[in-house]
Design a protein around this nucleic acid. Sequence first.
DNA 1: CTTAGTGCACTATGCACATAGTACACTAAA
DNA 2: TTTAGTGTACTATGTGCATAGTGCACTAAG
Lengths: 118, 118
Amino acid sequence: MQYDPNSPIWLQVMTAIKTDIVTGRRPPGEKLPGGRELAVLYTINPNTAARVYQELEREGLCESRRGMGTYVTGDEERIAQVRGTMARQAAARFANEMEKLGIGRQEAARMILEEEKE
Amino acid sequence: MQYDPNSPIWLQVMTAIKTDIVTGRRPPGEKLPGGRELAVLYTINPNTAARVYQELEREGLCESRRGMGTYVTGDEERIAQVRGTMARQAAARFANEMEKLGIGRQEAARMILEEEKE
DNA sequence: CTTAGTGCACTATGCACATAGTACACTAAA
DNA sequence: TTTAGTGTACTATGTGCATAGTGCACTAAG
């Protein structure tokens, strides 16, 4: 994984796993990799990995049990709620950025539809 | 101005001024506030303010002249180019985020058009 | 020449992040 | 009971960001 130096690594890894959860790639109740294993998977420090799970737990997306591991929450309503929030926030941020650039919603939407994939 | 603690302040202030330049709120050739004055305007440290101008100069959006101050570049082509890049990058980032959430371009564009303003 | 404003280059401190390493408590399985 | 895997809690180090403060070189205006 490629990391942006202008943003904390724990936040970037957290967002990646968060996305896996809300899209169902990591289903409710599933066991997540152990802290030490996560560190290897994402080439980060075990302490940073622990931070990732702490923050995910704080958002109600997973539960850590000492000696057993960390699991995706079974609260599907919460997961759906977070997914909606993520989408709405992304849209709001984009609309805001474009507005600051003096580009209206019509034009912004058009750019999304016609955008080239690189 | 409100600062996001998960991103460097110099980058946030830089983006703000960059936006002012590409939208014409700060026209080509205009004198920008002095480093010490900028620090007061944005409630940041003079060193951080200096960093902002250094980075803006590195992007070819302003020119600093010792003893005279910092000025918006007169290269209007460069300004237009940066504006286009900012818009395209914002669109690409948004489309990518939505794709990761399993939301297609049609739906993403619809959200932009129908998004509520808060 | 003097002065004010400027860019620019330093030193120093505090903090968060990321790293490395160690240790302990707990759980499940052999 | 022993063992492996786990979450959790420490200490310690290095780095970048942001802060504070000082000083110097340069420019334009008085």
